[in-house]
Design a protein around this nucleic acid. Structure first.
Lengths: 236, 236
DNA sequence: GGTTCTAAGATTGTAGACAATATCGCGGCT
DNA sequence: AGCCGCGATATTGTCTACAATCTTAGAACC
């Protein structure tokens, strides 16, 4: 069941890559390795030996190789020429860099959504907003985390901005591990939900610049929180 | 000479991929195909048949295949499962999308540069600014275009922001063809040089927000120009 | 005449073997 | 004892052959 949830999350994060249901050994192995990395089954910096993966997933080395190339393109795997592949480790500094880039790109998406919002979409956003507030009040952090991702995905989708979506999908996939560290802190959720509400409010008000500002404020806050957590961990 | 210039531009745009000088057939073929695409030797949407490329570059099909995977990761090649690869065509709409994303990311880079500017860097930027103005006054469009790219690369480098640099490199590689359409218009250069000067001025003033605004203004202007050119071409 | 089935051709996907390269440990030398 | 070179091993890079899949052309049929 946990595996199914992880699968779902990954599929939602990278819809462009291709349906994971079928399409030959190629896509299957790629998806399996990706899931294993995202779920943490393979640790950061762990070497990914083609022969081992080949045996583990019962596919030829050529297939595994193709999968690794693909994942390298997504930024999940690092390939050192003649030295092999390994799980790319994202340091806290890199995670912050990713968030900084997301400010601009996600801000753009939010602005686009605010600009072209239909009434039905507005209703959906209102509902999502209410659900997020409720989940935090009830202390249901996993539900809140789920809604969180849903908001991200919606904004991406409704922006109808393929380029931005691609960039965000790639960045998001890389920083899944760090997202996780924050999402489990109740105090963090209380702050975060207000910021998310502000984003939705700006979108509902059909205010592109306001949405952009709200996204920026939220991500800056996430950066700050990440810095704090990192500092605390360093001293501990 | 034109070929050498194109080569240089590509190498500068994607320094992370690896030195093109050596490193096995792998990198060589990848670079050759990339150059061929960027230079327009292979037209957009043209099919890239592995066997053909294999013969053309005297490498095995596996090597070509790996190269195509790599290029797909860079967004230059489109891979349709079981149907082959082709040169990815960037429509005007997509080019505009790319520019919109660049607003945020390049703005971030410019802000970072403005924030951490050293005196030597400031001197270099001043010189570049003067050179740009001079090249436009003399009507030397190819020189101006070169300085243009130099400014972009410098800002990326000096931002010390690996994530943003990667994203920008990828986006830039895809839109080379459209850049080209604008750079050859003298009227455009006269406007563009003012905007570039404004960006440099903000950086020299060590004003991060100003730099971000200047970048945004410039790229919005580029978008507008691209729309105009596209509209003119459509009616013609 | 048009449509659909079929078969041949073209092209990609997969597999396994071999070559090239890097890594690591051991023995000899200083 | 420490360092350097050298060989053994592990791993990736490359090649060739074969299988699967898609595309296209032609013939049979309605």
């Amino acid at each position: 069941m946990a595996a199914a949830a992880a699968n779902e999350a990954t599929a939602a994060a990278l819809p462009a890559v291709g349906a994971s249901s079928e399409g030959g050994a190629q896509a299957r192995v790629t998806d399996q390795i990706r899931d294993a990395i995202v779920r943490g089954e393979y640790a950061p910096n762990q070497r990914l030996i083609e022969a081992d993966l080949s045996a583990a997933f019962s596919a030829s080395r050529a297939t595994v190789r193709t999968a690794l190339l693909e994942l390298a393109g997504e930024g999940l795997v690092e390939r050192l020429p003649n030295k092999g592949s390994r799980v790319r480790a994202i340091s806290v500094d890199e995670a912050i860099e990713i968030l900084e880039v997301r400010i601009g790109v996600e801000g753009l998406c939010a602005a686009k959504v605010a600009e072209h919002l239909t009434d039905e979409q507005a209703a959906e956003f209102s509902r999502l907003r209410a659900d997020m507030v409720a989940s935090v009040e009830e202390g249901d952090l996993v539900e809140y985390s789920r809604l969180n991702r849903a908001l991200d995905v919606w904004v991406r989708e409704l922006s109808h901005h393929a380029t931005a979506s691609d960039v965000l999908a790639r960045l998001h996939a890389q920083s899944v591990r760090h997202q996780f560290r924050l999402s489990s802190r109740p105090a963090r959720a209380k702050v975060s939900v207000l910021e998310h509400a502000a984003i939705i409010d700006a979108i509902l008000a059909r205010d592109p610049e306001g949405a952009e500002r709200a996204v920026r404020a939220h991500l800056l806050s996430v950066i700050e929180a990440l810095r704090e957590v990192a500092a605390r961990e360093a001293t501990a």
